[in-house]
């Protein structure tokens, strides 16, 4: 067992972990933050995506001991005392989630995407989230949600969140 100390959503945590414990299990089981999900065993689906020192990381493919000394943000840490994070608002207002299982991972991936590229094109968004699978939504509204969050974060005029029909 090894003792590690890390910051999760701003709070410092210490844990005794076995060297083989995956970071996602540490977060979900030791710290009971179950908003981070597990959808595969091959680092393909992205449901477990979190931010480690600001970078989006699939936490099923990082050992807990590798997170020693790191700062982690999970879905539970997105909202602040002022309210929801723009990406959370964007997902809700644009109907970018159905079952909700992939949502946390996609939002955290999008947070880093918007950090690096505050005004992404549709194509940049699609490639940017291509490491995250969603089986319910068909992605149209996830793209819209990220565009909406981009507008909100950049202070641009907010796009309509009403559905558009032909």
């Amino acid at each position: 067992m090894k003792s590690i100390t890390l910051k999760i959503n701003g709070a410092e945590h210490t844990a005794e972990v076995s060297p083989r414990t995956l970071l996602v299990h540490l977060i979900r089981e030791n710290f009971s933050m179950t908003g981070t999900h597990i959808g595969c065993d091959t680092t393909s689906c992205g449901a477990c995506t979190i931010l480690v020192n600001g970078r989006s990381v699939k936490s099923c493919t990082m050992l807990a001991v590798q997170a020693d000394g790191k700062e982690i943000i999970t879905v539970e840490g997105l909202a602040t005392a002022e309210g929801l994070h723009p990406i959370q608002e964007g997902f809700h207002l644009n109907h970018a989630l159905h079952c909700g299982f992939c949502t946390a991972g996609l939002m955290l991936r999008a947070v880093e995407l918007l950090e690096k590229n505050p005004n992404p094109t549709e194509e940049e968004i699609r490639w940017g989230i291509s490491g995250n699978l969603c089986r319910c939504t068909g992605y149209n509204n996830i793209v819209k949600a990220i565009q909406w969050a981009s507008a909100k974060m950049q202070g641009r005029e907010l796009p309509s969140t009403e559905p558009e029909f032909v």
Binding site: M33, H37, T74, E76, F91, H92, G100, P163
Partner: peptide, 23 residues
């Protein structure tokens, strides 16, 4: 009416309760 979904609040804040969350 295109009402926004009532269930979203828990999912976007990581407060859903899926079976692997049951302890």
């Amino acid at each position: 009416h295109s009402k926004k979904r009532k269930e979203d609040a828990r999912f976007i804040q990581g407060k859903g309760n899926y079976v692997d969350d049951v302890k």
